[in-house]
Each structure stands twice: as structure tokens, then as C-alpha cells.
Design a protein around this nucleic acid. Sequence first.
DNA 1: GCAAGGTC
Length: 697
Amino acid sequence: MKSIKFWVGAGGVAHHLLVCEKPSAAKKIAYALGGRGVGRIGRGLPFYRFQKGGDTVTVVSALGHLYIPVQQCKGWSFPVFNLVWKPASGRRAKLFLEEIARLAREADSFISACDYDTEGSLIAFMILRNACGGADAKARRMKFSSLTRDELLRAYESTSELDMPVINAGMARHEIDWIFGVNVSRAMMDAYSCNTGNFEVLSAGRVQSPTLEALCRRENEIDLHVPDPYWTAGAEIRFPSSGETAKAEYSRNPILNKAEGEALKIRCAGSPGKVRRVEEAELTVPAPHPFDLGELQGEAYRVFGLQPWRTQKIAEGLYLEGLISYPRTSSQQLPPSIGFRGILTELGANEAYKESVSSILNYADSGRGLWPRQGKKSDPAHPAIHPTGIKPNRLGADARKVYDLIVKRFISTFGPPALKSSKTIEVELEQGDVFTIKGEAVSDPGWMEHYVPYVKISSSRLPEACEGDAARAENVRVEETFTDPPPRFNQSSLIKFMESNGLGTKSTRAEIISTLYRRGYISGSSIRVTGLGRGVIEMLRKRFPDLVSIGLTRDLEERMAGIEEGREDYSAVLIRGAEAVRDAFGHMISEFEAVGAEIATLVGEIKDQKNKIGMCPSCKNGELKIVRSRKTGKRFVGCSNYGEGCSFSAPLPQKGTVKATGEVCRACGYPTVLVMGGWSKPWRVCLNTKCPSRVKG
DNA sequence: GCAAGGTC
């Protein structure tokens, strides 16, 4: 009989099986521990084997979660509370699990080497328990804060027990999310289809619903905002000694009533005065830290207008091509182990970065050393996003932009601080009113030179002036302005909101926003909540108040922490969650018809909205709609006043999805539509066949 | 046809 050894060393020869989270991590871990002795095994899968200290070590990889919770009994009923963990469907997942199971039979010691976080602990646990013959009972855990050689060697030599409380917390998180999300989504769809006989995909969830709720609240604030008027005054100040003029702001802006503004204007126009104070200051702007995923998404939105989900897809593509490091990271730090000099040198071979690289290396070699500026956030499994140094060939237009942004940001993090000088000149007029001239100029661009054109190196020339110099106010103006409502969210600011409220993770936020669009809950790049979105939230507020509240995530986090610390019991947490859903359902089922009817009206409105393109440019009061010709079956844009004599029509491409943009063409003022197909990115088309924007040239 | 979380 085979003896089972699960200790390391102690004279015996052991065969260790390391379970990693993903192929790239498996490779790094294998080579860190096995060095040159590493060989590939596993029929084309990313599995490795080597000898270490007389033991055999097999390294296998998962593909993220290979086990997922599914309902025990088949069917589309609700509410469902009984879940079981089953292997993920899909050919690849199956292949991985079969091969892991085969290799596990040869091993007698098992180590969880997934990312050191809750999901990682759970991924390894499920595999050890279900694909390795219950090896979870004797398995050990490697704990590492980065995938670097030293860290991994240390983690391998000092494994600890599996962290069962963390694993239980992870299971509870998955199951609660399923029980809340799937059941409530099904209830909404069922209520709708029972009421109308039609089908529509509707959804709710722990992350998407509070996100939608926040958008609704913002929408309300905007609706309720009453613009308050206020006035700001400014003047042009002339310095007779030099003949120079400069723009100045009144020192006591804003002015809260109109009469005061008028009086100021009369008092100051053409009035002489003196320079009261000149203040000059130097400001240091340190180099930026490298990107985590959220910041890359934010910056790509700011400089290119790329939507976050698209930036994420592009970055994942660049990663798969080997051009950049793993993008789903929350780290803003670069460890020296990635080889700063090596990467920079390789980037320097690219003509576009040659100059920046040599300047950075000179700066480093002049005694300062090669050190990137580090950000605050870290990640247990990955460094900040950085280029690998491999030279790209043939990237799409957007991929090239994102790549360039990542490279320039990376180079900039090694740069010297930039210096800005600011100058403030205060001018006091005869009557005692004070106007202030302010300006800022970059005196030494430092790192900014390497981040151009993504940073503007601003300079404004300021007049030379000394205390006591004579001055005169010219062109005194008082402008009426109104207080603004809070701004609408866009995808970038919404991701930031989600991040700061702990909603979703770095990998899921962009996708969850896309889901809200797909469901017809929100629309526009400056995000508006649709009638359907508001209706869903109102319904949830009434019947599932927990689900629309950010508090559910807070509560879940609290309970997970409780499980991890042994204060709470995994099954008690699940039972409590299920009970909350069951009670809410008791409430809802009695009002089933009402819910269905509410949703039915809202869905109807949305479908109508989707076909509306904008105002008719021909008769000026009809509404343009997508219609289908009865004769040819082809779709085109027609006017709602067709019956009343408006004959406007515009052709549409027959393939792909056509969506209203809600915006008019900049060149000719006609409404525009968005044409989307699998073959390219969304394409904005002006409905005017003779529009100058359509003429290529 | 549903969640949110990993990953290709």
C-alpha cells in the first residue's frame, strides 16, 4: 500500500502538486522554484514538473474558477435556495480538470498556490477537494505578496494550513450573490411575461442594482436642482510703466447680488491703483505612479475618450500578445524584479521612445538610480501595469494608443519631478477694491517631457510687476452665472464611484456597467437612467430594499470578515441571506400582477425609445424612427409625419445593430445613428446623405 | 434569457 506523505523533507521522498490560479502564474511559479530543471508536462496544457531537494514537484494551473455554484434541481423556477458546486462547463475547463485529476493520483502532497486572496483560496480548495480526491484535508497553502522568485521560494519553504475560514467566506459570497441575483432577476422576468405573454431579459444583483440606484439618485438631484444666480467680476489690468496688460479676477468673487456687481463695475471702470503684493512660489510635481487597471481606464477615457470596457479588452489583448503585464491588477507599484533597466533598454530600441529612454537612463546614472515612483495601492498577485519591452508589430489604431499610453506612463514614473512656478499679483484700486492676476508656468518639465501629449506643459507669460507699481483697471466686466447641478456620471467617473464604494472588483466593474446598458436601464455617454431603469429601482426599493442598498455589500463584507475571524458561521450567514430573500418574495408574490404591469409599461416605453432617432430635419416637428419597408423588408429611417405629408427618409445599412445616439451631426446638424456590427467598432453615421462629414478626402 | 467572480 502506498504511504501518504505530506510533510516536506523529513528524509522521505515526496511528490508535491502545486495548484495555481492561471497559466501565467503556473509558469512563473514553476521557473521560480525549479530553475533550469523545469520541464513541460500535461499534453499541451500549461503544467510543469521538476525535481527539488530530492522531491518531485508538479505545477498545475486552473483557469480561474473551475467550480461554480449551480442550482441542485433543474428548471427555471424561483425562489431557489439549494446550490451545489459543480465543475464549470466548457471544453477547456473539462480538459484542465481531467488532467489535474490524473496528475493528482501520482502526488502525495498538495499545495494551494493560487493568488493570495479570497477567490484564489477558493479556486484551489475546490480543485483540491473535488479533482484531487479530497486532498484539501491535508493540503498546505503558499502565501505570497508578489510572483517574484525570492517571495515564491520563501512561500514554498514556509507553507501553512489551508485558510478554511477564508474559503468559507468566499463560498458564502458566491452563494449569496446567486441567491439574491438569480432569484430576483427571475421574479422580475416572470412577473413581466405572466403579464404580457412576452419575454424580456431583466436583472438585479448585489453590485449592479446599487450602482443603478446611485445613478437614479444623481438623476433626481439633477431634476431637483434649482439654479441659483451669482455674479463674478473680472478686469483687464494695465501697467503703464511697461504697457503690458493682464487678466485679473475680483478678489471677492462670487458676488451674491446683482446690484453689488453693477456698483462695482461703475466704481472700478478706468480706476487707477497700485500693486499691493507680488507673490512667487515654486511647486514640485512628482512623477506619476504606474497604472492599475482603474487608472488606466480613467486615463484612456480622459485622453482618448475610450470607454472603460473597451480599454480593458484592449489591455487584455496586449497582455495575451505578450506586450504588457497582466492588466487586471489593483497594484500601483513596480517591483525591481521585473528588471527596470532591461525593459527600458528594449523600449529604447523603438524609435518613438528612444529619446525618452536615454534621458531617463542618463538621469538614473547621474547618481539618482533607477527608481519608479510608487503608488499607494498594491495587489497580492500582480505588479502595476507595465510594458514587457517586446516590440509590437501591427496593432489596431486603439490598441496602439493604449500601448503608447502605458509605455509613456511607465517611462515617466522614472523621471525627475517637474517644477512649476506660480505668480500672484494683487492690485488695489483707489476705492479699495482688489483684483488678482494669477499665472502658472512649468519651469522645468522633468517627467512631463516623457508623458507628452498626455500632459500639457502649460506656460502663461506673466507681466513683470513690483510692489508699488502703478496700474489701471480696464474692461471691468460682471458676468451672471448659475449654480450647476451635480454632473452626470460617465463610465469613467462611475467606475471611480464604484471603486470608492467597494462595488464590484477591478475586473468586473466595466462589465457590470455594460450590463446596465444592455438591459436598457441606462443610456448615453453622459449617463441617463431610462424609465425602465428608474422603474426597476423603484420596484426593488419597495420589495427588496436590501438589494438596492450599498449596505448589502457592506453587510456581506462584514459577514465575510465575521466568518474569517470565526465570529460568524458560514451556514448561518447563508440561511440568513436566504431568509431575507424568502421574506421579500412572500411580499412580492402577493403583488405579482402589479409588479408585472409596472414593468410591462416601462419595457414598452423603452422599446419605443430605442427606435426613436431624433427630430426630423425636413418638417422640423416630426420624429425620426427606424421603420421597415413592407414591400422590400429593408429598414430605413422615416418621419412620424409621413402620413401628414413629410417624405423625409434616409437609408440605413441592412446589417448590424442600429442605435440612436441622441446627438446631432457636428457638420450639418442632422441626427446621427450608431451602427454596430461584430466586424468593427461602433460607427457613427450622419443621416444626411449629402453631409460633408460623409465625403472622404 | 438571470448574479458576481475568476480566467482564456
